[in-house]
Design a protein around this nucleic acid. Structure first.
Lengths: 186, 186
DNA sequence: GTCTATACCCCGATAGAC
DNA sequence: GTCTATCGGGGTATAGAC
C-alpha cells in the first residue's frame, strides 16, 4: 500500500522524469500516469509546470545537501571525497539518470529566473563544500590539489557533473571514480 | 544577401537552437521562422526531426574535430591545451549556448540509438586527443597529470563539459580557464 | 481533492497545387 | 522546392460537478 501523499509522489516522480528526460522531455500526462491520477489533479497541487519544477528542485536540493553535510567531518579528506563521490554515483539510478540540477542547468534557457537561482545556489553549495574539502586534503597531504581552493572546488564539481553525463551516455559507472582517483596521492 | 542554401541555413540554425534549448526545447516552427521558410519545407530536407538532429550532430562533429586536429602539433602541450580550451570557450557564443554534443548527451533518453552513437563517437575523439596531449605534457613536464592518459583525458573532457554548462548558468566565461589552470605547472 | 469535459494552441508530419 | 491546407495527436491549463 502506498502511504505517501499524492503530493509527495508527484514530486518524487517529477524528479525522476526530469533526471531522465529534462524539463521539456516530460508532460503532465506522463507524470499523471506514473502516480495514477488525472492531469487536473497535478494542477491542484502545482498550478503550472514551473511551480512543479521549482518545488522539485527545492526538495532535491535540501535533501542532497543534507546528505552532503552529513558526511562525517572527523574522517580524513580523501575518505570524505570517496563518500561524496558515492553519493554522486547514486544519482545514476538504473544508469539512465543524471543530477537534477545538472539537467536543469542544461535546460536553463527554458526556465524562469527563480529556477536559475535555485540551481545556482545548489551548484555554489557543492562547489564551496568541495573547495574546503580539497583545501584540507592539500594541507594534510592526502589529496593533490592545484591552485586556490574555491577554483579547485568548482573544477572538481564540473568534472563530476560531466562524469555522470558521460557515465549515462556510455552505460558505465566507472567515470566518477576516475575523477576522484585523479586527486588521490599514490 | 544570403548566399547559403536553405539546407545549410536549416542545419546552422538547428545547431544553434539545440545548443540553446536542447532537442525537446525547439520546434520546426521556431526553426522555420529563423530561416524564413514554412515548416513543410524543413520536412522536404529532413523528413523527421530525428533526421535533422542526426545530420546536425554529424556536421557539428566533423567541423569541431577538424578544428581540433588543426591545432599545430609542433607547439608545446600546454600551449595546445590553451588553444583547445579557446575552441571550447567559443561554444558559449553570446554566453547562452553549450556544446551541442554535451546538450544531446543530457537529452540522450529522448533520442534514437544512432544519435547516441554519434555523440559517443564525438566524446571519444575528444577524450582520446586530450589523453595524448596530457601524456605528452606529462613527459615534457609542462603539464601536471595524475594517472593514465586515457582516464586523464576523460576526466579533463568531463571537466570542460561541466565548465561550459556552469559558465552559462552563472553568466561568466572564467570557468573554462580555471580548468586548464589546474593542469599548468607553476 | 479528484474527477470529466473541454478550451486553445502547438506538435510533427503529409497531401497535393504550383 | 516551396507553398497552403490539413490531419491526428499531445501540450498546458481551466471550469465546474461530485
Amino acid at each position: 500500500m502506498e502511504t505517501r501523499t499524492v503530493r509527495e509522489q508527484l514530486l518524487d516522480y517529477a524528479q525522476t522524469l526530469i533526471m531522465l528526460r529534462g524539463y521539456n522531455g516530460f508532460s503532465y500526462r506522463d507524470l499523471a500516469e506514473l502516480v495514477g491520477v488525472k492531469t487536473s489533479s497535478i494542477h491542484y497541487y502545482f498550478p503550472t509546470k514551473e511551480d512543479l519544477v521549482l518545488e522539485a528542485v527545492n526538495v532535491y536540493s535540501s535533501e542532497s545537501l543534507a546528505e552532503m553535510y552529513a558526511i562525517d567531518s572527523s574522517q580524513s579528506a580523501d575518505l570524505r571525497l570517496d563518500r561524496y563521490a558515492r553519493l554522486f554515483g547514486k544519482i545514476l539510478g538504473d544508469g539512465d539518470q543524471i543530477c537534477l540540477c545538472g539537467m536543469l542547468a542544461a535546460d536553463i534557457a527554458s526556465l524562469p529566473e527563480h529556477v536559475r537561482q535555485a540551481v545556482q545556489s545548489f551548484f555554489k553549495s557543492n562547489e564551496t563544500w568541495l573547495g574546503k574539502l580539497l583545501a584540507e586534503g592539500k594541507k594534510n597531504g592526502t589529496l593533490m590539489v592545484s591552485g586556490g581552493p574555491e577554483a579547485a572546488g568548482r573544477v572538481l564539481y564540473a568534472s563530476l557533473q560531466g562524469a555522470v553525463v558521460a557515465s549515462r551516455l556510455f552505460g558505465t559507472r566507472t567515470r566518477i571514480e576516475e575523477v576522484t582517483k585523479a586527486y588521490k596521492v599514490h
